[in-house]
């Protein structure tokens, strides 16, 4: 019999292949929500969303975009913000 926590969907299910060739179900905590643009709310591309213990060991390039406002604004909003800045 499976335990109660394995019947609920609070944990996500990950298929893993063992060294013996069998596929096994692993139960892991769900990933946090994806990063969003601070201006329009679109999902930001190129930014990983993982649990903090994985984010710690990740390279900086996987967590940000190498552009001013990278990781905070989407590219369209960044352009708009810069143009507004110029007009002022």
């Amino acid at each position: 019999m499976v335990t109660g926590r394995q019947k609920s969907r609070t944990l996500r299910r990950v298929h893993r292949r063992t060294p013996g060739g069998k596929t096994v179900l692993h139960y892991k905590k769900r990933k946090p929500s994806k990063a969003k643009c601070g201006r329009c709310g679109d999902i930001l591309k190129g930014i990983k969303s993982e649990r903090p213990y994985k984010m710690q060991n990740m390279a900086k390039t996987k967590k940000t975009v190498s552009r001013p406002y990278g990781g905070n604004l989407c590219s369209k909003c960044m352009r708009a913000v810069i143009k507004e800045k110029i007009k002022q």
Binding site: S66, R67, P68, S75, M78, R79, I82, K83, K85, I86
Partner: peptide, 10 residues
């Protein structure tokens, strides 16, 4: 000019 794309933006 001001660049508005890429890592040299702004």
């Amino acid at each position: 000019v001001v660049k508005i794309a890429g890592r040299d933006a702004d």
